[in-house]
Amino acid sequence: MPRRKPPPAANDFLRRAIASAAARLMAEDGIGDYGAAKRKAARGLGAGDGDALPSNDEVEVELRAYQSLYQEDEQHERLRAMRETALRLMEAMADFRPCLTGSVLDGTAGRFSEIELDLFADSAKDVEIFLLSRNIPYEISDKGQPTHHAAHLPEAQLRLDWGDFPAVLAIYPIAGERHAKRSARSGRGENGRARAAAVAALLATGP
């Protein structure tokens, strides 16, 4: 027999339950990917991957609520420390027109978050040479796409530790500056990047 479709009220309740469970997984277990958190939360509640999965925006609302309720002081202190560290890293990488992105920018950074910077260079090798010349250790986590491919895709991603926090440097071709950063939540192109001046302004106004 075909599976019966749940009534709308039950569907809405399940969506909210999955969003809440996914937010807890992101806040407490360090799952940084919205899709992975939603799928794990759905399985934990006995639902399938395609059953009433909430949007990323719905999960973010629950994540902010969870952090405010259970991690407020810790999260605010960590967010400020990460933004201060990100600003110092941006100043060090100023030759590559860095932009802050990700959870440290949008304010949802938690215990397991990384500082995420977008850099723009003629080649990822330019950034690697810059780091090597200053004896800054790093790892290549993703080779990405050659620079002649789509400008909105990173050529490489480098990981390093800066201060007390891990950082990920996504290196885009110069033309990538003209492309809006796609939101990790909605997938839409939007203002998902901030220059050093904007990060300094965030620090001046608080979390």
Rank of each mutant, 00 (worst) to 15 (best):
E190Y: 11
G192S: 10
D126I: 07
G187Y: 06
R178K: 14
A150E: 15
P2H: 13
A180K: 14
A19H: 01
G110E: 01
L45A: 01
A196V: 07
D33W: 06
E116A: 11
P6N: 06
A41G: 00
L153T: 13
F165K: 07
E139Q: 14
A204N: 10
G46N: 04
Y34V: 09
R80F: 13
S113L: 01
L45N: 02
I115C: 02
S20R: 09
L87H: 06
G206S: 01
L87S: 02
D29G: 10
I174Y: 09
E190Q: 11
H179P: 10
A42R: 03
L117F: 05
R195P: 13
L79P: 07
L45T: 02
G107N: 06
V61N: 11
R97I: 12
R78Y: 09
P6A: 02
F96R: 02
N56T: 10
R195H: 13
D164I: 11
A41S: 04
L169E: 02
F165W: 08
R24Q: 07
V104F: 02
A175S: 10
T101W: 08
S183E: 05
E116K: 11
E84F: 07
L100I: 00
E91Y: 12
R15W: 00
F13A: 15
K40A: 09
P166Y: 08
P166K: 06
I136G: 07
E74N: 14
A167Q: 06
A23M: 03
R195C: 12
G46H: 04
R178Y: 12
V199G: 00
G32A: 09
P2G: 12
G48I: 04
S141M: 15
L117M: 00
G107Y: 03
R3W: 12
F96Y: 03
E60N: 09
A151S: 11
P137Y: 03
Y34H: 10
N11S: 15
E72I: 13
N135Y: 07
R43E: 13
A17I: 04
G48D: 05
E177H: 10
A109T: 00
R111V: 11
T205C: 13
A37W: 01
Q157D: 14
L53Q: 08
E60V: 09
R193M: 08
T85P: 00
D161F: 14
R88F: 06
D33S: 11
F112L: 06
G50F: 08
L119N: 00
C99H: 14
T85G: 01
T101A: 07
E62A: 07
M90G: 00
R159L: 15
A197I: 09
A86K: 02
F130Y: 04
D122H: 12
V104R: 06
A156L: 03
H179F: 15
E72H: 15
Y34N: 10
A17K: 00
P54K: 03
A167Y: 03
A204F: 09
N135F: 05
D126W: 05
Y138V: 00
A175I: 04
L203Q: 05
R97D: 14
A9D: 15
E190M: 11
A200Q: 08
S55V: 01
S141H: 14
L160H: 04
S123Q: 08
E114T: 13
A156H: 07
A184M: 09
A184G: 11
F96W: 04
A37T: 00
F13C: 13
R39H: 11
F130A: 05
V104K: 05
G192F: 10
D106A: 09
S55L: 07
S183I: 07
G110Y: 02
Q71P: 10
